[in-house]
Structure formats: structure tokens, C-alpha cells
Design a protein around this nucleic acid. Structure first.
Lengths: 214, 214
DNA sequence: GAACGTTATTTTGTATACAATAGGAAAAGT
DNA sequence: ACTTTTCCTATTGTATACAAAATAACGTTC
């Protein structure tokens, strides 16, 4: 279900590049040449530059002065820092969500989790990745705070290429879904401290799986 | 002490606008016309657009489709959400800083706090604002995590125009400095939970002062 | 043969020109 | 008098053209 909204040229390019980078087609370190992209998208350099600028602002690309744009590439140290930041932000989301929980947001989370379980039991890795994304997005939404949600989503995007190899086996999927369940219990307790601790735990197991794959 | 680094045109414009918005010269809701800015900065629309784009990415401006750029303006509800997010991020910084504290970062924080106390006792509001900024920046730095530090700084920038009227009286300054001291104790305890709680407390008193001013 | 300096080429940053759309003003109809 | 519609103007989005700077290539000199 790809939303077929009419986008401006620069937005279209931005979305396409985001997609390709997330999918791993454009590996970290790849140089993005403006003219090549312009010809590829049947556009001029101007919208290409706008798209590259926005992607840089999101941390998906890095752009040196007069040095061109590259798909962001991180050292072990930097990756560790980015994941640490992501963990903290996710924990903050869980914390706020626990405070502001209501029937609707609880239902959203439960529905997403049901999809996770289904995908895990089916051993469908692709489906699980999507369902997992939706699960976390449901938590972001449950904060009732779009600003918090945006940062969280941004970090998730940003770490996408480095989580791509996660969930190698069916057991990984099931373990992840189980971890979700614990997390749900912590959030639904409406105890903000427990919720943030629970999220930290979940992110830790998730991070371990990502490491296993590399 | 304005750093006289040679900047590209678009960076210069970005910096100038950031400055003016932070200083309150460009009030929230103000429309920023591209051609006016271009003539004002003796430049073409191209670098102006790049600057506006980056400022939008930072949340300092809002840009509607074909609707131009405006200095971000928030409802009570939205402001509350932004401050909530800021509080959580600052708390996360305090948490990480407490875990990773070392002699250097402790010293940085103490130096910044000394400046805060001096400014508070002198009743110098402008100096205190700068010192307070430096104090929080020292904590960001103490996380050892530039990504976390960047988000925190971004939110601080973003809320700048809405914290501008804070610290009306000398007593406010002294109260704030006292609150800093409590926070330092919490962070220096190297207990991450206590540190984040302490930061939340500090931000709460800070937020109260901001509200008083409006 | 290696290192350095100079020149060419490629690529980014900026300027200008053109196209398209949104918002408003004026006119027509009820 | 008020609403609706049409046209115009102002402003953004995109394309192309030009300038400046960085990297690569080459030749010269030690």
C-alpha cells in the first residue's frame, strides 16, 4: 500500500533515496553525484540538491563542504553512540506513553503486536520487520507527542541500514516478539519508570541481535 | 567573541537568521520572503532557499507547500509537547552523563556553574542566560555522545524564542543557580536514575519560570 | 625514479531565467 | 449586500547558466 500522493519533484527524489538507502541498495559510504541523480530522475540539479540537503539534515547522508554527499557511514564507536541515543529516546517514548495511555493507543499497540506474533510464528522475516516497525510507531503515537515521535522515527530511519541484517532465524523473531510482550506489560502498568526500563531492556536484546548479524 | 570563520553564503544567511530569531527580532509567525532576504543579504534566492530549508529541518521555521516560510509559532498545546520532549531529552543527557562522568567533564560543568553563580549574584541577566546555556552544553558534552548532544542543542535552540522572557528578577537567577547545584549533586552521584530525575526537577522549575513570564 | 608544482577536468556553490500554483482583487450573478 | 467566479499578481518550485574550488592528471625538476 504505497500512498500515491502527488509529490513535488524534490520530495519524490527524497523519498526514493530514503527508500533505497533503507533497503540497503545504496550502501553506507556510497557517493551520491548530483548530476547523475538529476539525469536519473529526469530533473535538474536544484531539486536534487534540496533532497540531499534534507536527507543530510536527517543524518541519513553526510555532506562535506564542497566535498559532495555520501550515504552516512559510521565507525563502531559512532554506531554505538547512535544506538545509545536511540535507546534513550525510545525509553523516553515508553515513559511518556505509559503516562498517557488510553484505550485507543492500547488497542493500536496490541494490534501491532498481534501482527508481530503472526509474522514470527509464520517465520516471515520481511513481514516481521514491517510489523516491528509498526509496533514501535504505535508506541511513538501513544506518547501523544508528535515532536517526540518525530525524533524517534528519525533515529529509526537513521539506524535502518545497520539493523537490516537482523533477525536471521525464526527463533530470533519469536524471541523479539516475546520481548515485545514484556515491554507491553511494562508500559500498560502505567508506571513510567518501569516502562522506560522495559524499553531499555527490549532495545538491549534487539541490539544484541543486530550485533550477532555482523 | 564571534568566531570569524569564513562561511559560505548560505551558511552565513542561516547563521544570521538563527541569531535574529533567537534574539526575538524575528517573532514567531513572521513570514520570511525569499526575494527580500536575497536582496537583504546581497545574494540570490538559491542560497536563501538552502538556508530556509535547513532552518525548517531544525524546526525553527515551518514551510508549507507553495506557502512560504514562517518563523515557527506554536499553540499552548504544541509548546507543552515541545517542552515535554526537551525535558525528556535533557533527562536522558543527564542520565548518560552520570554514567560516563570523568574529571574533565566534571570540571567543565563546575566551571560553567561558577559562571552561573557569578552572574546570578551580579544580577546580570544577559550573562546568566549565556552561562546557563554553557552549563547545559557542558552536560551535553559530558554524555560523550555527540548525537545526543546535537538533539538536545537543537531543542534548546528551538525553544529559545519561548524562553526569552525568563529570569525576570534577580531572585529568579539565584533560584535557578541553586537548582543547578542540586542537579550537579545528582549527576555527580553517578547514579543515572537520580541524575535523570534531578534533571527533570530542574527543568520543571525552569519551565515554571518561563510560564511566570508569560 | 620520486616528489613537487602546474594545469585540466570534474563537481559543487551561486546566480538568473522560466514555469506553475496559490492567494487575492475585481466583476458578475443572486 | 453578499456570494461566487474569474482573472491577475505575487511567490514558490524547477531549470539552466556561470563561477569557484577541489581532485586528478600530467609534466618537470631534483
Amino acid at each position: 500500500m504505497t500512498t500515491t500522493t502527488k509529490l513535488s519533484t524534490s520530495r519524490r527524489i527524497e523519498a526514493a533515496l530514503t527508500e533505497e538507502i533503507a533497503a540497503g541498495e545504496l550502501a553506507p559510504g556510497t557517493r551520491l553525484d548530483e548530476v547523475s541523480l538529476a539525469t536519473r530522475f529526469n530533473a535538474s540539479r536544484t531539486p536534487v540538491r534540496e533532497a540531499l540537503g534534507r536527507l543530510t539534515a536527517q543524518g541519513i547522508l553526510v555532506q562535506g563542504e564542497k566535498r559532495g554527499a555520501f550515504v552516512a557511514e559510521y565507525s563502531r564507536e559512532e554506531l554505538s553512540q547512535i544506538f545509545e541515543a536511540m535507546h534513550e529516546i525510545e525509553a523516553a517514548c515508553a515513559r511518556i506513553a505509559a503516562q498517557r495511555l488510553n484505550f485507543l493507543s492500547k488497542t493500536d499497540i496490541e494490534i501491532a503486536q498481534a501482527a508481530c506474533i503472526a509474522a514470527a510464528e509464520a517465520g516471515d522475516r520481511e513481514a516481521y520487520l514491517r510489523a516491528n516497525e509498526a509496533f514501535h510507531t504505535a508506541i511513538y503515537k501513544a506518547t501523544g507527542n508528535p515532536y517526540m515521535a518525530e525524533i524517534a522515527a528519525e533515529f529509526r530511519q537513521r539506524t535502518g541500514p545497520f539493523r537490516a541484517k537482523k533477525f536471521a532465524t525464526k527463533e530470533d523473531l519469536i524471541e523479539s516478539a516475546k520481548s515485545h510482550q514484556d515491554l507491553i506489560n511494562d508500559i500498560f502498568s502505567e508506571d513510567s519508570t518501569q516502562a522506560s526500563t522495559g524499553m531499555r531492556d527490549h532495545m538491549a536484546t534487539s541490539f544484541l541481535q543486530a550485533l550477532k548479524a555482523n
